[in-house]
Design a protein around this nucleic acid. Sequence first.
RNA 1: GUGGGCGUAGCUCAGCUGGUUAGAGCGCCAGGUUGUGGCCCUGGAGGUCGGGGGUUCAAGUCCCCUCGCUCACCCCA
Length: 430
Amino acid sequence: MGSAPENGGAARAPTGTRDVLWPESWRFEAAAARFAQLVQGAGYGLLQSPTFEYASVFRKGIGEENDVVGREMYEFADRDGKLLALRPEGTASVVRAYLQHRPTLPWKAWYATPLFRHERPQAARYRQHHQLGIEALGVADADMDVEAIWIADSFLRGLGLARFTLHIGSMGDGTCRPGYISLLHEHLAAHRDELCEEHRQRLDTNPMRVLDCKRPECRAVTAGAPRLLDHLCDACAGHFQRVRDGLGALGVPAEIDYRLVRGFDYYTRTTFEFASAAIEAAQNALGGGGRYDGLVEMLGGDPTPGVGFGIGLERVLIACEAEGVFTDGPPPLDAFVVDVAGGDAARDLTAALRRAGLRADRAFDGRSMKAQMKLADRSGARLALIVGPEELRTETVLLRPLRGDGGQRSVKAGEVVAAVQEERAGKDGT
RNA sequence: GUGGGCGUAGCUCAGCUGGUUAGAGCGCCAGGUUGUGGCCCUGGAGGUCGGGGGUUCAAGUCCCCUCGCUCACCCCA
């Protein structure tokens, strides 16, 4: 077992991970809170499941030959020798929880969780990122697909995002996909020599992968290849049409993408992806999902339909930054206490303000008045509450506005909290 | 896993063909204003020049190794 050097002792987050400091962390939480409100208002309940699972959960669900399982999973044996893995994607855990607890169907669950993949980091791609998602189990109805897509679209638009495109496609099912794959394989095999290096190899194991190869050689071959959407069985074709009609009725614009091939083995029928046009990086997928009618069975349950999606929180925030939307910040402090009379007032007045539900902070270490005023200004507080020897003697507090105009005024010590509350009410404008 | 770019103060960066005590802007601290922030002025603190080895009288600068960051491929949110 090789012991790779860490970091020369430097204080540094592991490769591909990062710290999110205030105020960015505030938007991070705020976006997640909006998602929670949206999905809870649509009948989804929060599922909190462990951040790691037995590795087999993901192996069975995602597919052994997939990169995410094959070479990117954080997999390890614990002290009991059990093979565990940090969650690399969201859906398999939800299905595992379903099989364990057997909630009444239909079951609509949502989650917000960190995901881990040992990939090479690059712009908008991390080894730990966060996804917001929903899964609906036990519903085969195409309208469930429409609901899922509508929710994802609403979330993104609700943040103010506009420069993104929804791509939808269909993977078919056990009835029509095998036939299509052999048809596709036949076409690709006939042009084997024209394909790029990698896909010449991959052609026989996973021909559908060739469809989303970006190299021009492959593009040329696949342009003339048979399309899955033209070879769907009647049931799948009807389902897809119903999804398209539903999105149209709800005013969700979607582009049909016959090349859309999503990474995981478990998808059947509907698949979809949201691509941002605002992100200046190669990784521009904000989120995606689809239907997975075979997954529950793959994990050992009875045949049970399911549909869901995951949205990458980091990428959503990058897109917001790029589009200049969702610039919300935390509410400012109501008051900052400046005490140059020994510190008792700062201690007691700050506590009184906080007990009254006001947002308040103060300076420590007996700094000079100038220094304390600087801190007050920097804190973003609306008011500075100044207590010096003079105020102590007259039992008053000097209430000084820090933003906008308006002069300072003296307030009786016993009426400060009420005065700050009035100031807040007056300036909230709500 | 593959390939390119880059590592100099808290942050963003200058440091020409190797040459004395390594600089700027912003930020921070203090003073100007012994009761007042934001603007301005003055001063100050803060650097193993990512780390290790080598070449040289002399290395931030050249060579090798290593760690890390970054962008792209692969793949993916």
